[in-house]
């Protein structure tokens, strides 16, 4: 809304009626109609939107009115330039900016893509009705003008969908990043013992993050034993196993023991079928078993004999 006064300031002498006279000189009927009947168009358009696509649960009347008025104003100025075909032209910068803001806002508000595009498409009805009355000459000229108006609005509608989709993709990309961070927590279980509960499919990018996070935490905590729990990993293929082995080797190079736990029966079978060699790696069925082993190792390393648990006695 801050845009309109600014533009007025740039061209103070030109009001809607002046634009209309200018448009009559330029002789494009769309421009004529937009300039002469802007207020009526707006009323009819809003009435149309209210009966078809309006979502009172998502957007307030006043907000919708403001958006529609701003869009019509910028569209009128763009059409005045005589260009009614190419919406990528600089003349349409204002229109695209209004629609871009609107689409992004609506994608966040929870509108569907069609509802967002219908904001533009619903202008067709009132605009066509006005054009039919305003266009001079025979049916041919009316059809030409209609086609031009249709083409223009279609492009603008598609533009809203594009922006809508782009902002959704941005959301997805950000969530993926968040997930990457969230899904690799390294927790300290005990003095000298850290655990990495892995959840989700392991691909190269994630494993790299996992590996770096784990090794960094080993340095920070001075842990002697690191437990990698893969209970939450749905499938293990050769690549995943390779990544796991690399992590274990790297941890060993730094002086920490690695235990892999949470290998489910099916995954154990898969690993054997794939011929992955895990003989150098300590593996345990559950995190509890791994932790018990880790206690033994930490105790032995510190020279403290570990009190035997009843289960093991």
């Amino acid at each position: 809304m801050a845009r309109t006064p600014e533009r007025r300031a740039q061209r103070p002498v030109r009001d809607a009626r002046a634009d209309a006279r200018h448009a009559r000189d330029a002789q494009h009927p769309i421009a004529t109609v937009l300039a002469e009947h802007e207020a009526e168009l707006l009323t009819e358009w809003l009435a149309g939107q209210r009966s078809t696509v309006r979502r009172p649960d998502l957007i307030r009347d006043s907000e919708l009115n403001a958006q529609a008025a701003e869009f019509l104003a910028t569209l009128r100025q763009a059409v005045m330039t005589g260009n009614v075909r190419d919406v990528q032209a600089p003349a349409y910068d204002g229109v695209r900016s209004v629609l871009g803001t609107l689409s992004r806002a609506r994608s966040l508000q929870g509108f569907t893509p069609s509802e967002t595009a219908m904001f533009v498409f619903s202008l067709k009805g009132p605009l066509y009705a006005r054009l039919r009355r305003a266009v001079p000459g025979g049916p041919d000229q009316v059809i030409d003008t209609m086609a031009a108006a249709g083409h223009l609005l279609d492009q603008l509608g598609l533009y809203t969908v594009e922006v809508y989709q782009r902002s959704r993709e941005e959301v997805i990309a950000r969530q993926q990043e968040d997930m990457m961070e969230l899904s690799t927590p390294v927790v300290k279980l005990w003095d000298g013992i850290v655990a990495l509960p892995m959840i989700g499919t392991l691909d190269s990018a994630r494993t790299q993050v996992v590996m770096e996070t784990l090794l960094q935490r080993i340095v920070e905590t001075g842990a002697e034993v690191a437990i990698i729990d893969i209970t939450g990993v749905p499938t293990v293929d050769t690549l995943t196993a390779q990544h796991l082995l690399k992590t274990v080797t790297a941890a060993r190079l730094m002086g920490a023991d690695c235990i892999i736990s949470g290998i489910r029966p099916q995954i154990a079978q898969t690993i054997v079928h794939l011929g992955v060699d895990l003989t150098d790696v300590t593996t345990k069925a559950t995190l509890a078993d791994a932790l018990r082993l880790a206690f033994t190792r930490v105790g032995a390393a510190n020279g403290v004999p570990l009190r035997q648990t009843p289960a093991r006695a």
């Binding site: 770096e212 960094q216 690399k246 080797t249 790297a250 190079l253 730094m254 002086g255």
Partner: peptide, 18 residues
């Protein structure tokens, strides 16, 4: 060998030197 940095460990593993 003590105090190997994480980046060094990763490099050695990627080089295939365990």
């Amino acid at each position: 060998v003590v105090g190997m940095q994480p980046a060094v460990a990763i490099t050695l593993v990627e080089l295939g030197l365990s």
